[in-house]
């Protein structure tokens, strides 16, 4: 069944949301922590099968945004629209049930367990009351094959023995094992060397080519421009620019990240322009 899903999603993904509807939309989302306005009136569309990069300086609200989408911190105002209908996420389980998987920077892997055990942690199938290792291993290997993770010697080796890139791959495989539609990755390349980073970026592209929407939070503009189909820039809790990656260049992204404006005149979507989710696109 996963095959069928990914096939249909793949067609949609290549056509950049053929029917035009985004997978996930944030509409006027705001979040306060006491008197601090962490997010104000965020509008963001995440189309299926594309890679959306979320950029922003420290404290711009990137973490709050992903925690809102992954159900950890419900928004104070605005709405979250998932596949066309408004949803309320009361916890990570709600987001997971929709097909939203979040991979935090710490990856949440258990070093002492092997790859299969990590991928199925908390969702182990049973056979006659006993862990069904065969089913788990077959499904884990299939998922890793689909993601073409080939550098791993044995899927029965403990995660402790893996490199940073391999661990990231396992975390991704774990996220997509059960029909993920949106995978959110928080700084996936932050702690990695050059070749490991390459490995992970390739993995992200492959994920989107399989029809999964990916949202990447990153400081690294090289990575952002390498993988992203769309770029969204946050500045002090406001969404200051959202558009296709080709509409940006390095300079303009840096300007948006540091000042909230761009001298290049690409767009100046501020708080006011946010009420219509499609506003930023229409400007083009």
């Amino acid at each position: 069944m996963s095959t069928g899903d990914s096939v249909t999603a793949r067609e949609g993904g290549n056509g950049a949301s053929a029917d035009g509807s985004p997978l996930l939309s944030l509409r006027g989302v705001g979040k306060n922590f006491g008197p601090v306005r962490a997010l104000s009136h965020i509008d963001l569309d995440i189309p299926p099968g594309q890679i959306t990069a979320l950029a922003g300086d420290n404290g711009a609200g990137k973490s709050v945004t992903i925690k809102t989408i992954s159900g950890l911190w419900p928004p104070d105002d605005g709405e979250i629209v998932w596949e066309g209908r408004s949803v309320r996420l009361h916890g990570p389980k709600d987001a997971e049930a929709l097909g939203i998987r979040t991979i935090y920077q710490d990856l949440a892997l258990c070093d002492n367990l092997d790859i299969v055990q990590n991928m199925f942690l908390g969702h182990e199938p049973l056979r006659r009351g006993v862990l069904d290792e065969d089913t788990m291993e077959i499904a884990a290997r299939k998922t890793l094959d689909e993601l073409r993770v080939r550098t791993i010697r044995s899927i029965r080796q403990p995660v402790a023995s893996l490199s940073g890139g391999q661990r990231q791959s396992v975390a991704v495989a774990k996220a997509v094992l059960f029909d993920a539609k949106l995978v959110i990755m928080d700084e996936p390349t932050a702690a990695l060397g050059v070749s490991q980073t390459r490995q992970v970026l390739d993995l992200i592209k492959r994920l989107s080519s399989q029809g999964v929407a990916v949202m990447v939070v990153s400081h690294n503009l090289n990575d952002v421009f390498e993988v992203a189909d769309r770029i969204a820039v946050l500045y002090l809790g406001r969404m200051v620019a959202v558009d296709e990656a080709s509409k940006f260049d390095r300079q303009s992204v840096v300007e948006y990240m540091t000042t909230g404006l761009s001298s290049r005149g690409l767009q100046t979507a501020g708080v006011g322009a946010g009420s219509n989710p499609q506003a930023s696109e229409r400007k083009q």
Binding site: L109, C110, D111, N112, L113, Q117, L121, G122, L131
Partner: peptide, 13 residues
């Protein structure tokens, strides 16, 4: 399995 997982990484569990 969960005992091992919690022993290594309670947050992941």
């Amino acid at each position: 399995r969960y005992i091992y997982a919690i022993g290594a990484n309670p947050e992941a569990a």
